[in-house]
């Protein structure tokens, strides 16, 4: 069946939330939505960064224990410990240390590790790519699997069709979502590395070493997002504009890819942004099980060592990345659905 004439289609698709165009707020000020958005979010980013710097600096010294003792080692004398404390600047008043810290940050200097003979920047620059690699591959896998899977199930079960599929999908995704990461990771190692010997158990020496950590990291989020996508698909498919589109017998690909997918992407991408931020900062378990040399392991070691500059540096960088990622997701959402520039999302 051919598509309806242009006039009818335009009228009918006016009900498609995406086709309405941006609802401009503050139009009287004659600023474009993007300019207004940039100003608003730019201020938010700066405020978030300022809070991050202050909180990070004052929170870290609350960790119990004396960094100088940790650095000095078990056989150090109190004289040596005092000398180390002095050389680390720990005898200075907190406000002075804060001023020095902010001054260093302004010049891009994150300081030197208390425990190791190296700069914090070097440590982060060495380890962040590993974590970023894992997280980016993980989120790519999550999006590539969960969106098609969730949409497919949503489409196949539309209008209470194939009830069994809906139940099975819910059970399987619910189960894998509930399995703790360390359990899943251990099972993966036992099966694929120790029993079948087809993949490395740990390390980052080879490309194949990426497979198990990425799987371990992605399974939970895949289940979460695919469940959300399934639910969103069901909702979107019940919208009037899609009923109309189906009535016109639009080709399936056009129907789902052009008119359905964009309307469920806002939720999926918002979630994916949060999950990616979490993966960057919270892949500690996966990094430990697979000996993946990322920042998650580093921050745990730094906390144990009372290595304040490393802890502060990693939190700061991860926090900054989380802020940037959230901003990026919002920009993408703005591109997909310009109404979100005003702080609202589509589909109500």
């Amino acid at each position: 069946m051919s598509e309806p004439v242009a006039l009818s289609r335009a009228t009918a698709l006016d009900n498609n939330p995406r086709s309405r165009g941006p609802r401009l707020r503050g139009g009287a000020r004659n600023l474009s939505p993007w300019t207004e958005y940039a100003i608003r979010r730019g201020g938010g980013v700066l405020l978030s960064l300022a809070i991050l710097v202050v909180v990070t600096f004052f929170m870290v010294p609350l960790i119990p224990g004396d960094p100088a003792v940790a650095v000095a080692g078990a056989d150090a004398t109190s004289e040596q410990i005092d000398a180390i404390r002095h050389s680390l600047g720990l005898n200075d008043p907190l406000w002075l240390r804060f001023l020095n810290y902010v001054g260093d940050l302004a010049t891009g200097n994150l300081g030197n590790s208390f425990a190791y003979s190296t700069s914090v920047t070097t440590i982060i620059a060495t380890k962040l790519p590993y974590t970023a690699e894992l997280a980016l591959l993980g989120i790519t896998a999550v999006l590539l699997i969960s969106i098609p899977a969730g949409m497919s199930v949503g489409i196949l079960t539309r209008g209470n069709r194939r009830k069994w599929l809906d139940v099975a999908f819910g059970m399987v995704t619910g189960f894998f979502q509930a399995v703790p990461q360390y359990v899943l990771a251990t099972i993966l190692v036992v099966l694929f590395a120790i029993t079948w010997r087809i993949l490395p158990a740990a390390g980052a020496a080879t490309l194949t070493a990426l497979i198990l950590p990425v799987v371990g990291l992605s399974v939970g989020p895949i289940c979460s997002i695919s469940r959300v996508v399934r639910r969103e698909t069901s909702t979107v498919l019940e919208q009037d504009y899609l009923r109309t589109a189906r009535g016109w017998r639009l080709p399936a690909l056009r129907l789902y890819a052009r008119h359905t997918l964009p309307n469920l992407l806002t939720t999926a991408l918002t979630l994916a942004g949060l999950i990616l931020s979490g993966m960057l900062g919270g892949a500690i378990i996966i990094e430990n099980v697979f000996n993946w040399p990322g920042v998650g392991k580093e921050i745990v070691t730094a906390i144990v060592n009372k290595d304040y500059p490393v802890i502060q540096g990693i939190i700061l960088v991860l926090g900054f990345l989380a802020i940037v990622l959230n901003l990026l997701v919002d920009v993408i959402l703005g591109l997909i659905d310009p109404r979100t520039l005003g702080g609202k999302r589509s589909n109500g």
């Binding site: 980016l136 790519t140 020496a205 194949t208 990426l210």
Partner: peptide
Amino acid sequence: AVAAALLLTSCTTGTTPSAGG
């Protein structure tokens, strides 16, 4: 996103064959 992940892969992991099995 995919390119960034692949680029990072080339920066971090090696390409030598796996030891696992």
